[in-house]
Design a protein around this nucleic acid. Structure first.
Lengths: 227, 227
DNA sequence: GGAATGCTTCGGCTACGGTCAAACTATGAA
DNA sequence: TTCATAGTTTGACCGTAGCCGAAGCATTCC
């Protein structure tokens, strides 16, 4: 009974509906202000402020002050991963949130997870790169091979620049809808950004869904064929 | 705000201290009765009964009636995985539960996770088998290679028997103390059982810790060398 | 400077949910 | 049949924690 870390405190934090809404809203990796999060959570500003300080205290989210605004981010990818895992558990009991609109279908296809591509397309990209020897898995970790560096560089990404940063370049993240890994880390983020820049896809500003352009579909399928 | 599965309900279930104790107690994979779990949780029997029906309702645990007893198990390995992940989050804030005794040190070395070997030795076994080409990872999944089947059979395990069962043979589970994968699934369980049968290790009946015998240390190091 | 905006703190209200004891059901033992 | 043990249900109690509005800081804009 007295073994291992105390789960209950952190789970209770996630367990409040307002706080869960806040965390879910932050899952797309964008930084949001306290007011925006209050709106998302459906509570008053003062209430949200209390929630936010608790979440920050537990280091689930990271606050940053900027002028008279205060921005919040998820603390890191591990937190995002735990949230995805919880969604996985919740999803199997049909506990999806209320109405499933057209957006929900698109969310299965492509969505933002923290800051990288998730959903069927995220998984396809990951598996394609593994299958072609561009990425190699080692336990929980994943790394670029030599061929992978060339490929990614050709894709228009400055690998050396990523490696100079503090963030982990390659990282896996478990996709809750597909139940498979997809690519996270600074490379995952860069790949998504690059595809947006090229006009392959575009983020829905009101949700985590990603809209894929016609030309993007073809280009993506060519770049990341199923193996 | 209205996207994706509803996390808060399931997190709130885990977030109550009594229920968290119950779930933690079930992490070693043994089935426990309602009375035993009440004891573990530190609440009265009637209170525990209420908690247990809620957990069962959410399919986090699976009840089985046997005579006038009612046994409870974790629902499956995915639930165990989420709990381990939450422990990982909790652990990094030094939120380990109260006193860290000698048992806690041993827990880092070897412990039971659901029903398989976890901790440093669990991770070492997994990585050794990957490194020698006995196991191969494919995304989130992991599988035995031909050489792996031979090795495991030579270890004294009836692979065909495992495959006949309903449970997934190979499965990964993220180790909260090591932050790496270890081997779960029915093979993971069989490996641990086999090592116990051979007298390499023995479970501490009062905790999740696994005691490693002297001869077990040498035999384990020989069977699963670091690569 | 003064006004407006963004956030925090405080006080008070409320309700949800955890708790237990006691009554009740069900299974097994004598 | 009767008693004992295991678990569930009910009802009453109580505390915690979420909620809001109002007042208080802090920062920026005019």
């Amino acid at each position: 009974m007295k073994e291992g870390p105390d789960i209950s405190h952190i789970a209770a934090l996630i367990g409040d509906p307002a706080r869960a809404n806040i965390l879910t809203a932050l899952m797309d990796g964008r930084a949001l202000t306290a007011s925006e999060l209050a709106e998302e959570a459906g509570v008053g500003l003062s209430t949200a402020s209390g929630h936010l300080s608790k979440l920050a205290e537990a280091e689930l989210i990271a606050p940053r002050k900027s002028g008279r605004h205060k921005y919040f981010n998820l603390a890191d990818a591990e937190v995002a991963g735990v949230l995805e895992a919880l969604m996985g558990l919740a999803a199997r009991k049909g506990a999806t949130r209320v109405r499933t609109g057209p957006k929900d279908a698109q969310m299965q296809v492509a969505r933002v997870c923290y800051n990288h591509l998730a959903g069927r397309m995220g998984v396809q990209m990951y598996r394609s790169m593994i299958g072609r020897g561009l990425l190699v898995e080692d336990g929980e970790d994943v790394a670029l091979t030599g061929a992978g560096r060339d490929f990614v560089t050709g894709f228009g990404i400055d690998v050396a620049g990523l490696e100079a940063g503090r963030a982990l370049v390659c990282r896996t993240c478990l996709d809750w809808s597909e139940r498979r890994n997809h690519l996270a880390g600074s490379l995952g983020r860069a790949m998504l950004t690059r595809m947006e820049d090229q006009g392959w896809m575009r983020r829905d500003p009101k949700s985590r869904a990603i809209l894929v352009m016609e030309k993007g579909k073809a280009a993506f399928a060519a770049a990341f064929p199923e193996t």
